[in-house]
Protein backbone atom coordinates (compact mmCIF):
# COMPACT_ATOMS: atom_id res chain seq x y z
CA UNK A 1 0.00 0.00 0.00
CA UNK A 2 1.35 3.39 -1.03
CA UNK A 3 1.70 5.65 2.03
CA UNK A 4 1.57 8.74 -0.21
CA UNK A 5 -1.85 7.72 -1.49
CA UNK A 6 -3.15 7.22 2.04
CA UNK A 7 -1.80 10.59 3.18
CA UNK A 8 -3.42 12.18 0.15
CA UNK A 9 -6.76 10.56 0.96
CA UNK A 10 -6.36 11.87 4.51
CA UNK A 11 -6.12 15.46 3.28
CA UNK A 12 -9.16 14.98 1.06
CA UNK A 13 -10.98 13.48 4.04
CA UNK A 14 -10.09 16.42 6.28
CA UNK A 15 -11.38 18.81 3.62
CA UNK A 16 -14.71 16.96 3.48
CA UNK A 17 -14.73 16.88 7.27
CA UNK A 18 -14.35 20.67 7.45
CA UNK A 19 -17.43 21.15 5.28
CA UNK A 20 -19.42 18.80 7.51
CA UNK A 21 -18.05 20.63 10.54
CA UNK A 22 -19.08 24.08 9.32
CA UNK A 23 -22.66 22.95 8.68
CA UNK A 24 -22.91 20.85 11.85
CA UNK A 25 -21.43 23.52 14.09
CA UNK A 26 -24.45 25.75 13.53
CA UNK A 27 -26.88 22.86 14.00
CA UNK A 28 -25.36 21.64 17.24
CA UNK A 29 -24.93 25.20 18.54
CA UNK A 30 -28.58 26.04 17.97
CA UNK A 31 -29.63 22.76 19.54
CA UNK A 32 -27.44 23.32 22.56
CA UNK A 33 -29.04 26.67 23.29
CA UNK A 34 -32.66 26.19 22.23
CA UNK A 35 -33.05 22.35 22.41
CA UNK A 36 -34.60 22.47 18.92
CA UNK A 37 -33.27 20.03 16.32
CA UNK A 38 -33.63 22.18 13.27
CA UNK A 39 -34.36 20.44 9.94
CA UNK A 40 -34.51 23.89 8.35
CA UNK A 41 -30.78 24.18 8.93
CA UNK A 42 -30.45 22.50 5.52
CA UNK A 43 -32.61 25.25 4.03
CA UNK A 44 -30.33 27.92 5.52
CA UNK A 45 -27.39 26.11 3.95
CA UNK A 46 -29.13 26.24 0.58
CA UNK A 47 -30.02 29.92 0.99
CA UNK A 48 -26.39 30.65 1.84
CA UNK A 49 -25.33 29.17 -1.48
CA UNK A 50 -27.90 31.12 -3.49
CA UNK A 51 -27.29 34.43 -1.73
CA UNK A 52 -23.54 34.12 -2.14
CA UNK A 53 -24.04 33.30 -5.81
CA UNK A 54 -26.23 36.32 -6.42
CA UNK A 55 -24.08 38.76 -4.45
CA UNK A 56 -21.04 37.43 -6.28
CA UNK A 57 -22.68 38.18 -9.61
CA UNK A 58 -23.39 41.72 -8.42
CA UNK A 59 -20.26 42.54 -6.41
CA UNK A 60 -17.74 40.33 -8.13
CA UNK A 61 -15.81 39.58 -4.95
CA UNK A 62 -16.34 36.08 -3.60
CA UNK A 63 -15.23 36.77 -0.01
CA UNK A 64 -17.49 39.82 0.37
CA UNK A 65 -20.38 38.00 -1.29
CA UNK A 66 -19.90 35.08 1.09
CA UNK A 67 -19.98 37.28 4.18
CA UNK A 68 -22.92 39.43 3.07
CA UNK A 69 -24.86 36.38 1.92
CA UNK A 70 -24.32 34.49 5.18
CA UNK A 71 -25.24 37.50 7.28
CA UNK A 72 -28.47 37.79 5.34
CA UNK A 73 -29.17 34.11 6.02
CA UNK A 74 -28.53 34.85 9.69
CA UNK A 75 -31.17 37.58 9.64
CA UNK A 76 -33.65 35.22 8.00
CA UNK A 77 -32.82 32.67 10.69
CA UNK A 78 -33.59 35.21 13.40
CA UNK A 79 -36.85 36.07 11.63
CA UNK A 80 -37.82 32.38 11.53
CA UNK A 81 -37.07 32.03 15.21
CA UNK A 82 -39.26 35.00 16.12
CA UNK A 83 -42.10 34.01 13.79
CA UNK A 84 -42.24 30.22 14.19
CA UNK A 85 -39.62 28.51 16.34
CA UNK A 86 -40.28 30.67 19.40
CA UNK A 87 -43.87 29.34 19.39
CA UNK A 88 -42.85 25.67 19.62
CA UNK A 89 -40.29 25.48 22.43
CA UNK A 90 -42.86 23.89 24.74
CA UNK A 91 -44.15 21.34 22.21
CA UNK A 92 -43.20 17.64 21.98
CA UNK A 93 -40.26 16.79 19.71
CA UNK A 94 -42.30 15.41 16.75
CA UNK A 95 -44.09 18.74 16.35
CA UNK A 96 -40.78 20.59 16.42
CA UNK A 97 -39.25 18.32 13.80
CA UNK A 98 -42.27 18.54 11.53
CA UNK A 99 -42.53 22.34 11.75
CA UNK A 100 -38.90 22.80 10.77
CA UNK A 101 -39.44 20.22 8.00
CA UNK A 102 -42.31 22.39 6.77
CA UNK A 103 -39.93 25.36 6.68
CA UNK A 104 -37.62 23.37 4.39
CA UNK A 105 -40.47 22.80 1.92
CA UNK A 106 -41.35 26.51 1.99
CA UNK A 107 -37.78 27.72 1.47
CA UNK A 108 -37.07 25.20 -1.28
CA UNK A 109 -40.03 26.36 -3.31
CA UNK A 110 -39.20 30.00 -2.68
CA UNK A 111 -35.74 29.31 -4.07
CA UNK A 112 -37.34 27.67 -7.12
CA UNK A 113 -39.55 30.75 -7.59
CA UNK A 114 -36.66 33.20 -7.39
CA UNK A 115 -33.76 31.33 -8.97
CA UNK A 116 -35.49 28.57 -10.95
CA UNK A 117 -35.30 24.81 -10.54
CA UNK A 118 -32.15 24.36 -12.64
CA UNK A 119 -28.90 24.08 -10.62
CA UNK A 120 -26.76 27.19 -10.89
CA UNK A 121 -22.98 27.22 -11.13
CA UNK A 122 -20.74 30.02 -9.94
CA UNK A 123 -17.94 31.46 -12.05
CA UNK A 124 -14.77 29.54 -11.36
CA UNK A 125 -13.03 30.32 -8.05
CA UNK A 126 -10.05 28.68 -6.39
CA UNK A 127 -9.27 26.87 -9.61
CA UNK A 128 -5.59 26.22 -8.95
CA UNK A 129 -4.18 22.98 -7.69
CA UNK A 130 -1.19 21.76 -5.75
CA UNK A 131 0.93 18.72 -6.35
CA UNK A 132 0.93 16.63 -3.18
CA UNK A 133 2.52 13.18 -2.95
CA UNK A 134 2.56 13.04 -6.74
CA UNK A 135 -1.16 13.71 -6.95
CA UNK A 136 -3.13 16.81 -7.84
CA UNK A 137 -4.86 18.37 -4.88
CA UNK A 138 -7.42 21.05 -5.77
CA UNK A 139 -6.70 24.40 -4.12
CA UNK A 140 -10.26 24.35 -2.88
CA UNK A 141 -9.44 21.58 -0.39
CA UNK A 142 -6.81 23.81 1.20
CA UNK A 143 -9.19 26.76 1.40
CA UNK A 144 -11.98 24.77 2.98
CA UNK A 145 -9.59 23.40 5.61
CA UNK A 146 -8.44 26.94 6.43
CA UNK A 147 -12.07 28.11 6.56
CA UNK A 148 -13.00 25.25 8.89
CA UNK A 149 -10.20 26.03 11.31
CA UNK A 150 -11.03 29.74 11.22
CA UNK A 151 -14.66 29.04 12.05
CA UNK A 152 -13.60 26.78 14.92
CA UNK A 153 -11.46 29.63 16.28
CA UNK A 154 -14.28 32.11 15.75
CA UNK A 155 -16.71 29.92 17.69
CA UNK A 156 -14.19 29.46 20.46
CA UNK A 157 -13.56 33.18 20.67
CA UNK A 158 -17.20 34.20 20.55
CA UNK A 159 -18.31 31.69 23.17
CA UNK A 160 -15.47 32.10 25.64
CA UNK A 161 -14.35 35.68 25.19
CA UNK A 162 -17.40 37.80 24.46
CA UNK A 163 -20.19 38.98 26.73
CA UNK A 164 -22.82 37.54 24.40
CA UNK A 165 -21.03 34.18 24.43
CA UNK A 166 -21.02 34.23 28.20
CA UNK A 167 -24.76 34.89 28.29
CA UNK A 168 -25.33 32.08 25.79
CA UNK A 169 -23.33 29.68 27.93
CA UNK A 170 -25.30 30.74 30.97
CA UNK A 171 -28.71 30.19 29.41
CA UNK A 172 -27.57 26.84 28.02
CA UNK A 173 -26.36 25.64 31.39
CA UNK A 174 -29.38 26.75 33.41
CA UNK A 175 -32.13 28.72 31.63
CA UNK A 176 -34.09 29.44 34.79
CA UNK A 177 -31.15 30.76 36.77
CA UNK A 178 -29.97 32.80 33.79
CA UNK A 179 -33.37 34.45 33.58
CA UNK A 180 -33.30 35.14 37.31
CA UNK A 181 -30.03 36.98 36.72
CA UNK A 182 -31.84 39.22 34.27
CA UNK A 183 -30.83 37.71 30.96
CA UNK A 184 -33.33 38.15 28.15
CA UNK A 185 -34.16 34.68 26.78
CA UNK A 186 -36.04 35.92 23.71
CA UNK A 187 -33.06 37.98 22.63
CA UNK A 188 -30.60 35.20 23.30
CA UNK A 189 -32.61 32.48 21.53
CA UNK A 190 -33.18 34.71 18.51
CA UNK A 191 -29.52 35.68 18.26
CA UNK A 192 -28.43 32.08 18.83
CA UNK A 193 -30.64 31.05 15.94
CA UNK A 194 -29.20 33.88 13.89
CA UNK A 195 -25.68 32.72 14.59
CA UNK A 196 -26.57 29.11 13.73
CA UNK A 197 -28.20 30.15 10.47
CA UNK A 198 -25.18 32.33 9.69
CA UNK A 199 -22.91 29.29 10.03
CA UNK A 200 -25.21 27.23 7.81
CA UNK A 201 -25.14 30.04 5.25
CA UNK A 202 -21.34 30.11 5.37
CA UNK A 203 -21.30 26.36 4.70
CA UNK A 204 -23.59 26.77 1.70
CA UNK A 205 -21.58 29.66 0.27
CA UNK A 206 -18.31 27.82 0.79
CA UNK A 207 -19.34 24.80 -1.29
CA UNK A 208 -20.07 26.95 -4.34
CA UNK A 209 -16.62 26.62 -5.93
CA UNK A 210 -17.01 22.85 -6.21
CA UNK A 211 -20.73 22.26 -6.48
CA UNK A 212 -23.66 24.08 -7.98
CA UNK A 213 -26.52 25.62 -6.02
CA UNK A 214 -29.67 23.49 -6.35
CA UNK A 215 -33.03 23.47 -4.54
CA UNK A 216 -32.52 19.97 -3.06
CA UNK A 217 -29.01 20.57 -1.72
CA UNK A 218 -30.16 21.14 1.84
CA UNK A 219 -31.96 17.81 2.13
CA UNK A 220 -28.76 15.88 1.53
CA UNK A 221 -26.38 17.84 3.72
CA UNK A 222 -28.76 17.94 6.69
CA UNK A 223 -28.54 14.16 7.09
CA UNK A 224 -24.76 14.37 7.30
CA UNK A 225 -25.07 17.23 9.76
CA UNK A 226 -27.43 15.11 11.87
CA UNK A 227 -25.03 12.18 11.80
CA UNK A 228 -22.12 14.39 12.81
CA UNK A 229 -23.98 16.12 15.62
CA UNK A 230 -25.45 12.92 17.03
CA UNK A 231 -22.08 11.14 16.98
CA UNK A 232 -20.42 14.12 18.60
CA UNK A 233 -23.19 14.48 21.15
CA UNK A 234 -26.16 16.77 20.50
CA UNK A 235 -25.30 20.28 21.56
CA UNK A 236 -21.56 19.69 21.88
CA UNK A 237 -19.49 21.93 19.62
CA UNK A 238 -16.23 20.19 20.42
CA UNK A 239 -17.97 16.88 19.70
CA UNK A 240 -19.16 18.12 16.31
CA UNK A 241 -15.62 19.06 15.33
CA UNK A 242 -14.18 15.70 16.34
CA UNK A 243 -16.97 13.64 14.82
CA UNK A 244 -16.89 15.63 11.57
CA UNK A 245 -13.21 14.72 11.34
CA UNK A 246 -14.01 11.07 12.07
CA UNK A 247 -16.76 10.92 9.44
CA UNK A 248 -14.78 12.80 6.78
CA UNK A 249 -11.67 10.68 7.23
CA UNK A 250 -13.61 7.40 7.43
CA UNK A 251 -15.38 8.32 4.20
CA UNK A 252 -12.21 9.25 2.35
CA UNK A 253 -10.24 6.22 3.49
CA UNK A 254 -13.31 4.04 2.92
CA UNK A 255 -13.57 5.27 -0.67
CA UNK A 256 -9.95 4.18 -1.08
CA UNK A 257 -9.96 0.78 0.64
CA UNK A 258 -13.56 -0.42 0.40
CA UNK A 259 -15.21 1.66 -2.36
CA UNK A 260 -18.33 -0.55 -2.45
CA UNK A 261 -18.97 0.15 1.22
CA UNK A 262 -18.08 3.85 1.26
CA UNK A 263 -21.63 5.24 1.10
CA UNK A 264 -22.70 3.13 4.09
CA UNK A 265 -19.74 3.99 6.33
CA UNK A 266 -21.14 7.15 7.99
CA UNK A 267 -24.31 5.25 8.91
CA UNK A 268 -22.34 2.31 10.25
CA UNK A 269 -20.29 4.75 12.34
CA UNK A 270 -23.48 6.37 13.62
CA UNK A 271 -25.10 3.05 14.49
CA UNK A 272 -21.96 1.89 16.25
CA UNK A 273 -21.61 5.05 18.32
CA UNK A 274 -25.28 5.10 19.28
CA UNK A 275 -25.24 1.49 20.34
CA UNK A 276 -22.07 1.82 22.40
CA UNK A 277 -22.54 5.36 23.64
CA UNK A 278 -26.08 6.60 22.97
CA UNK A 279 -25.41 10.15 24.13
CA UNK A 280 -22.59 10.61 21.60
CA UNK A 281 -18.88 11.06 22.17
CA UNK A 282 -19.11 14.36 24.06
CA UNK A 283 -22.79 14.23 24.93
CA UNK A 284 -24.25 14.77 28.34
CA UNK A 285 -27.17 13.02 30.07
Amino acid sequence: MDPGAIAFQLIIGIATAMLYWIVSSGLTFTFGVTRILNFAHGAFYMLGAYFTLTFFEVIGNYMVALLVGSLLVGLIGAGCERAFISKIYHLPVPFQLVLTFGLILIFEDMVRMVWGAVPRMMMAQFTGSLSVFGRTLPMFSIYIIIAGVLIALLLYYVLSRTYWGMQIRAITADPEMAMCCGLNPSFLYATAFMFGAFLAGLGGGLTLPISSAAPGMGENIIIYAFIVTVIGGLGSIKGAFISALIIGIIEALGAFFVPWLAIALPYIALSAVLLLRPEGIFGEV
Binding site: F84, I88, L91, V98, L99, G102, L103, L105, I106
Partner: peptide, 10 residues
Protein backbone atom coordinates in the same frame (compact mmCIF):
# COMPACT_ATOMS: atom_id res chain seq x y z
CA UNK B 1 -47.92 22.19 1.73
CA UNK B 2 -45.18 23.62 3.91
CA UNK B 3 -47.46 26.47 4.95
CA UNK B 4 -50.17 23.91 5.78
CA UNK B 5 -47.75 21.91 7.95
CA UNK B 6 -46.60 25.01 9.80
CA UNK B 7 -50.22 26.07 10.36
CA UNK B 8 -51.17 22.62 11.68
CA UNK B 9 -48.28 22.63 14.16
CA UNK B 10 -48.92 26.20 15.32
Amino acid sequence: FGVAIVAVVL
